[in-house]
């Protein structure tokens, strides 16, 4: 009789605990990063944290930025490849610092204020179709590209594609960075303009056009997507520029008003952990930042392949200049002028 009573009491005590375990903490991640690409990492996270219910939303950079700024309740984690916008949000105070061993060990050049972290290492590449090789030597540098655009203008007319700086934050950032490195970039813009370049919103659209045969050459594509695509599409060749190659980093931060800060920090910490980076290097084409991680896609392996000509877009306050409206206006004005300058 007494035993039964005790058992009932024990059950009554355990009931709330069981109920608590059932209620999983939700975690909202707003990301400008294709779900298919990052899927292995998300799966690993859900395995490691079964009590967190992950809601991953894959959106455009501009939408992610808008949601981080305006939508309430705020997302827990914000991930975007639009580096200047991410940094601007952190500078506004929209992020909260992450204190963890992984965050502390994270390379200094790939983080800012311990609040935002660049966790991928994606080279910017030139992609061309095999058709191109039959007519000319494929370009390996920016100068080569400019040369073939001018020497084979008629052949390439309408078959060149690149990002739209007006519609894509990533494209805008890449062109700004290109313009910082060489004034001859504007010659390239003019040459592309003369070749009636098609401006696309994202890398996938350019890759689709290349596979379809609509485009022969694409400039400033995300190497991560392009390399992944090229593995299953042999007509597409990926070329990391040999003079210099920009490197874009996806930046992640925990939102200041995150409704579930503990889960959010666990997620970002997982991105930065050796385990998370190993998944990035082995199962995604996003390239791991950490030098000690080994896999087909690591920053170290990329450096070994293309040499020291990789120029990561720096994660520091200078990015803020790119989102300055006046500077953006001035840049777009020049872009629009240069792209039409060689029109007949």
């Amino acid at each position: 009789m007494l035993h039964r009573w005790l058992c009932c009491l024990l059950l009554a005590c355990l009931m709330p605990l069981a109920a608590l375990a059932q209620a999983r903490t939700p975690l909202v991640v707003e990301a400008a990063l294709d779900r298919q690409v990052i899927a292995p990492l998300l799966a690993a996270f859900e395995r490691a944290y079964p009590d967190i219910a992950l809601h991953y939303h894959d959106r455009s950079t501009l939408e992610v930025d808008r949601r981080a700024r305006e939508v309430r309740p705020a997302p827990d984690v914000v991930i975007s490849s639009a580096m200047p916008w991410q940094l601007a949000r952190v500078n506004e105070g929209l992020a909260q610092p992450l204190v963890s061993p992984a965050a502390r060990r994270w390379p200094q050049w790939a983080k800012w204020r311990n609040e935002v972290f660049g966790f991928t290492f994606e080279p910017i590449v030139t992609v061309y179709r095999l058709d191109l090789v039959r007519h000319m030597i494929p370009p390996t540098t920016h100068a080569d590209l400019h040369t073939i655009l001018t020497t084979h203008q008629d052949l390439l007319r309408g078959r060149v594609t690149t990002y739209s700086p007006g519609r894509s934050g990533v494209g805008y950032t890449l062109f700004q960075q290109d313009a910082r490195y060489s004034p001859r970039f504007w010659d390239l813009v003019a040459a592309m303009g003369a070749a009636e370049v098609s401006l696309e919103d994202n890398t996938q659209a350019m890759l689709d056009g290349l596979t379809e045969g609509k485009y022969w050459v694409g400039y400033n594509l995300l190497g991560s997507y392009a390399m992944h695509w090229a593995q299953t599409h042999p007509e597409v060749i990926v070329q990391v520029p040999q003079d210099y190659a920009l490197v874009m980093m996806r930046m992640a931060f925990v939102h200041r008003d995150a409704p579930h800060p503990m889960a959010a920090k666990a997620f970002v910490d997982f991105l930065l952990s050796v385990e998370g980076q190993r998944i990035l290097a082995g199962s995604t084409p996003l390239f791991s930042v950490l030098p000690e991680v080994i896999g087909p896609y690591t920053a170290q392996r990329l450096r070994d392949q293309v040499g020291e000509r990789l120029y990561p877009i720096p994660i520091n306050a200078s990015l803020l200049a790119f989102v300055d409206p006046l500077r953006r206006d001035a840049f777009m004005a020049r872009w629009n002028r240069e792209i039409r300058i060689l029109e007949p």
């Binding site: 952190v90 520091n316 306050a317 990015l319 803020l320 200049a321 006046l326 500077r327 001035a330």
Partner: peptide
């Protein structure tokens, strides 16, 4: 007035302490 905001200005502002600017 038209300004092409110099990126260096932001780095000077942020200092090595990575201040918000």
């Amino acid at each position: 007035p038209v300004v092409e905001m110099p990126a260096a200005a932001f780095q000077i502002l942020a200092t090595d302490q990575q201040e918000r600017v």
